[in-house]
Design a protein around this nucleic acid. Structure first.
Lengths: 174, 174
DNA sequence: CAAAACAATTTTAAGCTTGAAATTTCTTCC
DNA sequence: GGAAGAAATTTCAAGCTTAAAATTGTTTTG
């Protein structure tokens, strides 16, 4: 079953045929675009998860949480972490518990408001994160190596447009 | 999240003049690109999950599984479903159990090879899926509405290149 | 100054996901 | 024909994720 480290991925199914007369309410092009975006994202994400596990016995959520804290030397309030990571507050609770147990982060209750928890990387956590971040950057670089600088730039710009489109749509525009 | 920077790093094989300006191992541009891709993907995916839950009391994995089966009128072997959805075989087992319970799909053991399970949409499942698929297409269309046809085409092409790059990279190591 | 409102976080219940080990069922090859 | 191996699926243990309810602590207000 483990041919080369994973269950097999057969990537050749994204292309339906598009020779369609564009009827009203025909959303085929958008759907195909979304599927392709999702495929790219999933492929990269799965690989990153796999390597974090294999090389560091860690997970992507833990890495992401530490990445947020790396830029906040004085620590960050849990709610802020939750917003930045775009995950639910309850999720943060669990992640913080585990990362605290393993010594990667510290947590403090704010004296002036005892509802507030502040988390920060420990020196150990920071050192570990830096190792992971360096490897992570290499992995991404390898996975994206087939894109030229120019192609990458175009993709970056188009994704910016897409992001604006999505956010506008979520905000209620149509 | 990230600034609106440009793609400013050359891949290994395009050394030349820009290389001198960069620190060795500078993968910033690829990382930004990956972050942006992930952000777009996450935004869309979260919204789709939310609406599937609210409008249909369903989930994205269930929808995806039914979407695979819709194109296979004669059903599909579990392993094939697993590959196409790019998820682990054990995952499929759970999803199939629930969708069978709820009457959306049927499962049959292949008489000529009793290891093989074949799943297919039931008429009820197909009808339900069609309702969901129509709404799903509308949601995606709305979310992507800020992209012109041309921009969408460019994005599609660039994502195709990225997909090739990722797959080539995955094939080249373990 | 209490009571209500609000805010930050945790708990809960349910479902998703994975990799690895186990199980069942063929297939191959002496 | 029977053992060894391969293939398809399931089981298992652990972790992630969410929405909603509950908890704890602070602020506002009557």
């Amino acid at each position: 079953m483990m041919g080369e480290g994973k269950f097999d991925i057969s990537p050749e199914w994204v292309d339906g045929e598009t020779k369609a007369l564009e009827a009203p309410g025909d959303h085929r092009a958008e759907l195909r675009l979304w599927l392709r975006l999702l495929t790219c994202s999933t492929l990269v994400e799965s690989e990153v998860r796999r390597r974090l596990r294999e090389e560091f016995d860690s997970t992507l959520p833990r890495f992401d949480l530490m990445a947020q804290l790396e830029r906040a030397p004085d620590g960050m309030v849990l709610g802020e972490v939750s917003k930045r990571m775009m995950v639910s507050p309850g999720n943060i609770t669990v992640l913080v518990e585990r990362l605290t147990e393993s010594g990667h982060i510290s947590r403090t209750t704010l004296p002036t408001d005892r509802r507030v928890q502040i988390v920060a990387l420990t020196p150990f956590g920071r050192a570990e994160f830096e190792k992971m971040a360096a490897r992570h950057a290499d992995w991404i670089s390898d996975l994206f190596a087939g894109l030229s600088a120019k192609e990458g730039g175009v993709l970056m710009d188009e994704l910016a447009k897409l992001k604006r489109s999505v956010i506008a749509s979520l905000a209620g525009n149509t």
